[in-house]
Amino acid sequence: MEAKTKDLWVFIETNEDGSPKKVGLELLNPGRMMADKQGGKLVAVVIGDNVAESVEQAGIYGADQVIVVEGPEYKQYTTDAYVKALYHLTEKYGPTTIMIGATNNGRDMGPRFSSRVKTGLTADCTSLDIDEETGNVAWTRPAFGGNLMATIMCPDHRPQCGTVRPGVFKKPEAGENKAEVIKEEFHVAPRPSRGCQRGSW
């Protein structure tokens, strides 16, 4: 996919009550530094149900823009609905970078999304920077059970994507909320016909 902007997106995963998971807010910290180096906006992408609190927090913690997809079908995470929504937004806005918290859901959604876009994804990063020479994101992550660190780049495909381990970065300082909020109406069938419904054991 072509990048239409130099914007960096941080996916804000939400809880069932619509509040943000901490890792999304944490990522706004390195996100700010990288968005500035990339010369684009820092955008928070919030998907969930009743997400007013998440939208507000994303603004307080430094997002320039918040893109919101809201609906009861997003209350609980499902691979199908979330990947469809994120794909739709990516196609429409064309960010250059997407960061996703490496929670269980983030690591379920990330590879499904990146392979739909046919772009690169670096898993479970613990350190982030912009490569000075090329301007690409330099994603650093442990491998071999933590015995080795590798720095990975995705030079020719956009958006360049990574999942980032929770707890590695601190939340940025809270500030004045100046974020522009964009509400996207995008809805999917609440119960995908092919399953993935909650049940009991």
Binding site: A143, N147, L148, A150, T151, P155, D156
Partner: peptide
Amino acid sequence: GSPTHVKKSFTP
């Protein structure tokens, strides 16, 4: 054919 490339690796 791989979008990602290892730029460097090092021991932590």
